[in-house]
């Protein structure tokens, strides 16, 4: 029963936050589809993606909520912080304003997530070196000051994208291992895989009305 792609031990929930146009949806797309999405439309409300990864030999399913950067969606965006195990906070290395807003994003993230939520800082568009507006060292200092892990990525070339998502998962997994993340607490954004009740050959188990044979 537990064969195939749905075999995993944990679900980790992520959110991706940051200003409009920094490339949040492109990062998600690059991570889930391994492709760059040119002409990505503005996110309306929220997008969603999943991928199963492996950390220390454990299969982990990432459920990723990609939020809208536009101010008018801020209320909806805020509602997704709760229950996130990881928050990817993204700015655009070619636009200083998106970097300057990080402190307000970080305040939101700190206030609305639980203390164990791993916050990862991503400087996106690292392929556009000629247009760089925020030096690596400056952002690195900001990250260290605030206890964040930091990487510069490119959703276009795929550079470091994988690492950012995986490194976040490793930190969350580490928190589980050392007991600082209590699996029984609500809102941790980590779910041990729910036990699937064996369904006998597709015949009617409770709640199976979703299925239909035509």
């Amino acid at each position: 029963m537990s064969a195939g792609p749905y075999n995993y031990s944990y679900i980790f929930k992520y959110i991706i936050i940051g200003d409009m146009g920094v490339g949040k949806s492109c990062l998600l797309h690059q991570f889930t589809e391994k492709k760059f999405m040119a002409d990505c439309p503005h996110t309306i409300g929220v997008e969603f993606g999943t991928r199963i990864i492996e950390v220390s030999g454990q299969k982990i399913k990432l459920q990723i909520w990609d939020t809208a950067g536009q101010e008018r969606f801020r209320a909806v965006t805020r509602s997704y912080y709760r229950g996130a195990a990881g928050a990817l906070m993204v700015y655009d290395v070619t636009r200083r304003s998106t970097y300057n807003h990080l402190s307000s994003w970080l305040t939101d993230a700190r206030n609305l997530t639980n203390p164990n939520t791993v916050i990862f800082l991503i400087g996106n568009k690292s392929d556009l070196e000629a247009q760089r507006d925020v030096p690596y060292e400056e952002a690195k200092a900001f990250a260290d000051e605030n206890g964040l892990t930091f990487l510069e990525c490119s959703a276009k070339t795929g550079e470091n994208v994988e690492d950012a998502f995986l490194e976040t998962a490793r930190k969350i997994y580490q928190n589980i291992q050392d007991g600082s993340l209590d699996l029984n607490a609500a809102d941790t954004g980590v779910q041990p895989k729910q036990v699937v009740r064996p369904t006998t050959g597709g015949s009617a188990a409770p709640g199976e009305r979703k299925e239909c044979n035509c």
């Binding site: 749905y6 729910q194 369904t199 199976e208 299925e211």
Partner: peptide
Amino acid sequence: VRLGQLGDGWLTASEKAPKYFEF
């Protein structure tokens, strides 16, 4: 609640024997 409990199992089963899920 129901999809959390059963969704994965249903989707796995439907990989082998495709079927419609009705909403």
